[in-house]
């Protein structure tokens, strides 16, 4: 287990810059999420930590020791790939024993370690199977066991749940969370799914366009994204033009206290779930222009005065298209860019 620190890490392939000035610290035993759209550079960052690639500039530090140029073989930073990369010619048992064998662990200790971890991932009855005979969830547990049995400095999970069916995905998330709780390894989860990142970890780093946008708690990232790029990646938000004066943002929906310098051209962010529809009279009258039902909530498109069109995400399904309604802004932070 280790504390991981990245200092001003850059990575380019030829002309193309993949990572720019990424600095990040991950605590020992932390479950940390790295969130970003595909192509943002998050997988490259994972490969830099594992030692599969070297940064163009900057440092990778494990427990205060510079690991930037330590080979993957000696890092004990293990990626569990999206498709698990189980050795297809080896059995479950042999897959799990592979790293121990590489490390020259004596036979007796090796067997007991493999035995213990097989119990932990509930795969004792499949130990002689080949990977081709396993289900997706079983393969993932083998991959996790193969990495965890080595007590890695850091376990790197690359989009671990995106190949699984919805039901299995949730149970594997719980399984990984419980395993991490139990073994207390430092774990970095890479995902493009914001809900997954928010649910799995207490701190999330978001990378968009090769740059680290924000490192914060899930709540802070969701309600107060610091950059417009991050807000765009999170999506599900309305943007209203306005101006900032004396700590207040003036726009079509009213006046809101914000933490931003004065500006004549500001854009305010109102999340879809930050707006609510009501039949009781309020300051903003509007009309439902479109509606689409999505199960746990309904998406409405509402037009208000001066032709503004806003999207609203509501748990109420009973408003109808063409209905005259009122719009209210729920008390939550408003961000301006």
């Amino acid at each position: 287990m280790a504390n991981i620190r990245l200092e001003h890490v850059y990575k380019s392939y030829g002309e193309q810059q993949v990572l720019a000035d990424v600095s990040l610290e991950i605590d020992d035993g932390e479950m940390f999420a790295l969130l970003g759209p595909s192509g943002s550079g998050k997988t490259t960052l994972l490969r830099l930590i594992a030692g599969l690639e070297a940064p163009s500039a900057g440092k990778v530090i494990f427990n205060n020791a510079d690991f930037t140029h330590v080979s993957a073989q000696r890092r004990k930073a293990i990626i569990v790939f999206q498709d698990y990369a189980l050795f297809p010619h080896l059995t479950v048992w042999q897959n799990i024993a592979f790293g121990l064998r590489a490390g020259g662990v004596p036979r007796v200790a090796l067997e007991s370690k493999v035995h213990d971890i097989l119990g932990l991932v509930h795969l004792k009855d499949r130990q002689h199977s080949l990977p081709g005979e396993l289900s997706g969830g079983q393969k993932q547990r083998v991959a996790l066991a193969r990495a965890c049995v080595l007590e890695p400095r850091v376990l790197l999970l690359d989009e671990p749940f995106s190949n699984l069916d919805t039901g299995l995905r949730q149970s594997m998330r719980d399984f990984v969370a419980a395993l991490q709780e139990r073994l207390r390894f430092t774990c970095i989860l890479v995902t493009h799914d914001k809900e997954e990142a928010f649910m799995m970890s207490r701190r999330v780093a978001v990378i968009v366009d090769s740059r680290l946008q924000q490192v914060d708690t899930p709540e802070a990232i969701f309600t107060q994204p610091l950059t417009k790029k991050l807000s765009d990646f999170l999506g599900e938000a309305n943007y209203l033009d306005g101006r900032v004066q004396g700590g207040n943002f003036y726009c079509a929906l009213g006046i809101f206290a914000v933490n931003a310098p004065d500006s004549a051209n500001a854009v305010g962010r109102f999340r879809w779930d930050q707006l609510a529809l009501t039949r009781e009279a309020g300051p903003h009258q509007g009309r439902v222009a479109a509606k689409s039902y999505a199960g746990k909530a309904t998406y409405y498109t509402v037009t208000i005065e001066r032709g503004h069109t806003l999207n609203v995400f509501s748990a109420r399904h009973d408003f109808f298209v063409g209905e005259e309604i009122f719009l209210e802004v729920l008390p939550s932070a408003v961000n301006v860019y």
Binding site: A72, Q73, I78, A85, F87, A102
Partner: peptide
């Protein structure tokens, strides 16, 4: 190349990667 990379991360030497991963595959 993925299996060779995986083997390296699990601590295998280049020789072990050749005999235990690349050649059988």
């Amino acid at each position: 190349e993925k299996y060779e990379k995986q083997a390296a991360m699990l601590g295998a030497s280049p020789r072990m990667i050749l005999t235990d991963v690349t050649l059988p595959m």
